[in-house]
Write a protein that binds this DNA or RNA. Structure first.
Lengths: 260, 260
DNA sequence: AGTTAATGTTTGTGATCACATTTGATGTGT
DNA sequence: ACACATCAAATGTGATCACAAACATTAACT
C-alpha cells in the first residue's frame, strides 16, 4: 500500500502520543503525533495534526514549511500534506507568500490587538445570538464545563484549561442552531494560536473574577447585554497580560523569527 | 515576477467571456469561463472561477459537485479542481458532506438572517477600526467609488453595482493596515452568494437613502458611531427586500433543490 | 409488486512521476 | 574582498495511475 521502505521502521505501538523532531538546515520543527484513526482520511489526520501544532505554537512563525519535509516528519506521502496546508492557509492559520512558500504568519503587537478586538466583537455577537436558544440541557452542559474549568484551574493543568475554555465558548455559541460565525471565530483562535495558551498560563496567576459564572447568571436572566459584557470581559481579561505593551512585546518577540 | 496570490484583486471579466454548459444526468451546470492568465497557477484560476460561479449563484445549492465533472467543464486536470474545492470548502463557500461529496450549501431563512446579522456586527466593527487610518487618499478613493456606484445605478448595471459596492466596503475596511477581519467578511459575502446580487437588483427599485454618502460624512467627522450606523443601515437596507418573509422565502425556495 | 441482494460504474483519496521555478552554494571577475 | 554570474539541489505545481468506498442499476426472491 503506502509502505515503500523496506527498513524495519520503529513500530507504532500502543503509545498514544510521541514527539517527532527533525533538525533541518534551518530550525528544528517539533510536532506532536497522535495515533491515526483508520476511519479518518490521511488528509484529515494531517490537517488536525498540523492545526494542533499551529495552535500550540509548536511551529515558530516565519519558519518555511515545505510539503516534502512535513510529509517525511508525518510519515505520509506529500499529497495529504499539500491539501492540509492549503486548507489551513484558507483558514488564515498559515500564510502563503508570493514565493509560494508556506509559513506560520508572524505576530505583531497591532495585529494581536486587532485579533483580540475582533474576537470580542464577533464572540459577543455570537453569544447574544445564541442566548434565546439556550435550553436547560445546554445550561447544564455549560455549568459542567465551568465546574471542570475550576477544577483544572486548581490543579494548574494549563493544557486542560485551554481546551475546556474553548469548549465552553463553543458550547455557548453552538446553542444557536443556525450558527454561522463559529468557523470565523475558530479562525481567529487559530491565528491567536500560541498566545491563547500564554493567556491561560497568565490567567492562573491573576485569577480574576470568574467571568464564566457571570455569563451563566446573564443567561439565566436572559440578559443579552450582561452576557455580552461577560464574554467581552472574559476575552479581554484573558489577554490582560498583554495590556502591558512591554509584556506583549516580549511574547511577540519571543515567537518572532529573526528578520531575514 | 512576484505575484500577490492572496490578494483577490477585482479582475475585469468583461472581455473574453464565454459560457460552458454541461447537461449531466442531474441538473445542468453553467459556469462563466474567463481567459486564464499565464502568470497565474491553474489552481488559482480554477479557484477564482468557481468562486465567481458560487458568488453569482450559477451553481444551484444542493447540486453535487464532482471533481472530474468540473475538471471536464473547465478543461483542466482533476488536481487543480481538487485543491480549489478544498480551499472553497475551508472558506465555507462549499460544504463537504459526510459522503465526501461537495455542494453549495442550501440556504434557509434563519441562516440568511444570521448571515446578515453577522455581516452587520463584523463589518461595522471593521469600519470603526479602520476609521482612524483613513487618510485623504483613501477618502478620495472612497468618493470616487461612491460616484461610480451612483453612475452605475443610473445605468442600471447590476453587475457593476454589485462589484463596486464590494469594492467600496473593501476599500473602507482595508484602510486599517492591521486588518484581520476582511477574510472573515469575504467568507460571509461568499455564503450570501447570489443573494447579494438579488439585493442590488432590488435596491434599484427602492433607491433608498445613499448610506455611502452618510458613511463618508461620518468619516470626515471621525464619528465612529455614525459610521457604524451608516454601514449597518447600508447592509440592512441592502437586504430590506428580505424583510418580508414572503419575498425572502420565495428567493430561498427558488434556489433550494428539491428535498431528496 | 415491493424489498433485498448482487453487480458494474462512478468518485474521492492517495501515490508517484515530470517539469518549471526557486533557492542556495559555488565559482569567477573586477 | 565583494558583487555578480553560474550551476546543482530543492520545491511547488500539475498530470496520471491505482484502489477502496459509495452510488446507481439490475436481478432475484418472498
Amino acid at each position: 500500500m503506502k509502505k515503500s521502505s523496506a527498513e524495519g521502521k520503529p513500530e507504532r505501538d500502543g503509545l498514544n502520543q510521541r514527539f517527532c523532531e527533525v533538525m533541518d538546515k534551518k530550525s528544528p520543527i517539533e510536532i506532536t503525533l497522535t495515533e491515526r484513526d483508520e476511519s479518518v482520511t490521511i488528509t484529515q489526520w494531517v490537517y488536525q495534526t498540523l492545526r494542533s501544532a499551529v495552535m500550540n505554537g509548536q511551529i515558530l512563525p516565519g519558519r518555511a514549511l515545505t510539503i516534502r519535509e512535513l510529509a517525511a516528519i508525518l510519515d505520509v506521502s506529500p499529497m495529504p500534506v499539500r491539501e492540509a496546508l492549503r486548507q489551513l492557509a484558507a483558514e488564515n492559520a498559515l500564510e502563503i507568500q508570493g514565493n509560494r512558500r508556506v509559513m506560520v504568519p508572524r505576530m505583531t503587537a497591532m495585529k494581536f490587538s486587532e485579533l483580540c478586538e475582533a474576537r470580542i466583537a464577533i464572540e459577543s455577537h455570537a453569544a447574544a445570538r445564541a442566548l434565546p436558544y439556550i435550553d436547560n440541557d445546554r445550561l447544564q452542559q455549560l455549568r459542567e464545563l465551568d465546574r471542570c474549568i475550576d477544577l483544572a484551574q486548581e490543579e494548574g493543568d494549563l493544557e486542560r484549561i485551554s481546551i475546556l475554555n474553548q469548549n465552553f465558548h463553543r458550547a455557548l455559541y453552538t446553542a444557536n442552531p443556525h450558527q454561522v460565525t463559529l468557523p470565523l471565530i475558530e479562525s481567529l483562535w487559530l491565528q491567536l494560536g500560541p498566545f491563547m495558551r500564554l493567556a491561560t498560563s497568565k490567567l492562573e496567576e491573576h485569577y480574576v473574577i470568574d467571568r464564566h459564572n457571570e455569563a451563566m447568571r446573564a443567561i439565566e436572566k436572559q440578559d443579552a447585554l450582561a452576557l455580552q459584557l461577560a464574554i467581552s470581559s472574559d476575552i479581554r481579561e484573558g489577554f490582560a497580560f498583554a495590556a502591558t505593551p512591554e509584556l506583549l512585546h516580549r511574547f511577540i518577540e519571543q515567537s518572532a523569527a529573526p528578520v531575514s
